[in-house]
Design a protein around this nucleic acid. Structure first.
Lengths: 197, 197
DNA sequence: AAAGTAGCAGACCGGTCTGTCTACTTCGAT
DNA sequence: ATCGAAGTAGACAGACCGGTCTGCTACTTT
């Protein structure tokens, strides 16, 4: 089995580590969870972890990158499945948000928390978080352009504030209501941006 | 000096500890900073810390409570100083936000980060964060009522999303632009809420 | 002057952290 | 059958953690 270094990148042990790490970090925080806890949950030996990742920080970064890809794929899917009207496609993002926040596995935004715990500019987790949020912004900007907003970049940034605010408040209050508030606010901003070119 | 327990609560050592802790926690995170680092910065002995606070977690909670009071006082002041029009008073909150986010001492919201690092429902820091954000919501609700919004509670929750989103994005991007986006979005939401009672 | 107290420095405790290393097993490919 | 890679268990290092405890100093109150 898997003798090449390409295979290492998709090793089942590697996936098990990422699964365990993501679940534990999401629930308890990054610094609060030790390597040994991750190993025990993944059923993997310590040396195997350090064969795949140079350090705990790189493990965290890998978790974030995998999660970023998963979110991007899900969002693309939802947008493609939405009715053709650009407005509906943009609102599909907020529909996804509502679902994400309602999910029992939701324990706050993995990226925001990562940046909170590794705040130095050159910390890997912070960089991964920044890259992900920039990707979200670009997605919203494209959708904003499609709806014909006068200032699609500005609208995208405003919508992102609603999105991030929802992630924070839903986590803090343990209550998904923020998501419907965000959707309603997004519609209002959308209307204002459409009529004010 | 200060022999009574009332005096202990305003001891200069206590203030020094809170000052040092707040500065260090804000910059590096709560779990990343050890007790000894706080002690060294405050110039205080370990036993003195544990005379004032039962644990590190209670120190953190005390930092958050003091900060909550300070923010509430500043906000009340700004609102009182704003022109009489209710709309201007509400926007004064966003003016404060812009200043807070522009300040060189800004390293993200102390409360959001506390909840990220101590996410269990019965963790003191999380509870302090929740209480503070609820206070913010109530403040916004009062101001929303004053401007004559049809649904002041809903508007307040929407505005809070913008606020929290700004704190997150300004921290992540190390860029205060989010604050002006939030202000602009707030004005749009305000207008929509005024005309749609 | 005497007594009490707030604060000091720093040793100390048990435990946990990340990361390294060794010796052994498992198993597929040759 | 054998060789080598991947993985395992677990000891180990060295640092650091939060928290406790013991003396000692200096000052305030009586």
């Amino acid at each position: 089995m898997s003798g090449s270094s390409a295979a290492i990148r998709t090793s089942s042990k590697r996936e098990a580590l990422l699964d365990a790490a993501e679940a534990l970090f999401a629930r308890q925080g990054y610094r609060a969870v030790g390597i040994d806890t991750v190993l025990a949950r993944a059923g993997v030996a310590k040396m195997t972890l350090y064969k795949h990742f140079a350090s705990k920080e790189e493990l965290i970064a890998a978790v974030l990158e995998r999660r970023a890809d998963a979110v991007a794929a899900t969002l693309a899917e939802r947008i493609a499945a939405a009715p053709g009207h650009p407005r509906e496609r943009l609102l599909a993002v907020f529909d996804w948000l509502e679902e994400a926040v309602r999910s029992p596995g939701f324990h706050g935004c993995l990226f925001i928390k990562a940046a909170s715990e590794y705040p130095a500019p050159d910390d890997l987790p912070r960089q991964a978080a920044l890259a992900f949020k920039e990707g979200c912004r670009q997605l919203l900007e494209g959708l904003s352009r499609d709806v014909g907003a006068g200032d699609p970049q500005g609208l995208a940034r405003q919508l992102q504030l609603l999105l991030e605010g929802t992630l924070v408040m839903a986590f803090l209050q343990r209550n998904p209501r923020a998501a419907s508030d965000a959707r309603q606010a997004a519609m209002a901003l959308l209307e204002a941006a459409e009529t004010t070119p």
